[in-house]
Design a protein around this nucleic acid. Structure first.
Length: 183
DNA sequence: ACGATGATGAAC
DNA sequence: TTCATCATCGTA
């Protein structure tokens, strides 16, 4: 089975489409000991300038500028003063959208669940050093398709987490994708 | 249920 | 420059 590195064009399409497709793909980090890979099991989409839950809803700022760029770049920021949140920008240039990686699973002998964006970034030692960087091997953090097949019936679509402040309209949007189990 | 903890953005 | 806000987690 060949591992295919996802190109940035993978993210340059409708956010919800890319978000759903990202389930079962792998996030790979280059470390001194070698490559560490986790399978993505939970994501949330933040789509467009009108999405009140998105950082881009108040227009272009220094922090969210990368969201307005083309897809395939990382957007990392600090939340609650202690957790780095990892996002991957999606869509075309000047269309602010991104996917928040909320959960992943470590496969192999030491199986472990990384359920929560803070745990995910802590485990892989991801921080703002990769902010605005392209998701490729040069950056040292990228995505791979390792041939894991996902059945649509194991994909759950729910409301997003912690976005009550955005109002009921945006709370109702089913922008969160969870992979419940493998085939 | 709640507090830790700091960057961010908007108001002043 | 100051202040309210926050896409969380671990401990109770």
């Amino acid at each position: 089975m060949k591992n295919i590195v996802l190109k940035k064009t993978f993210f340059q399409r409708p956010t919800l489409e890319a978000a759903e497709d990202l389930l079962g793909k792998f996030l790979v980090k280059k470390t001194e000991q070698g490559e560490v890979a986790v399978m993505i099991t939970e994501v949330e989409a933040y789509d467009g300038p009108k999405d009140k839950a998105s950082h881009a809803s108040c227009g272009l700022t220094d922090r969210n500028a990368i969201m307005f760029g083309e897809g395939g770049y990382f957007y990392v920021y600090l939340c609650y003063g202690m957790y780095e949140m990892l996002n991957i920008v999606t869509g075309q240039k000047n269309y602010p959208a991104a996917i928040l990686l909320r959960g992943a699973e470590i496969l192999g002998e030491e199986e472990k669940r990384l359920n929560g964006p803070g745990k995910l970034t802590k485990f892989l030692n991801i921080n703002r050093a990769v902010n605005k960087k392209l998701a490729d091997k040069i950056t040292g953090l990228w995505f791979e398709d390792r041939g894991v097949k996902i059945s649509p019936k194991y994909i759950e679509r729910t409301s997003r987490i912690g976005v009550a402040y955005a109002g009921p309209i945006w709370l109702k949007k089913k922008y969160r994708f969870v992979l419940t189990k493998l085939e």
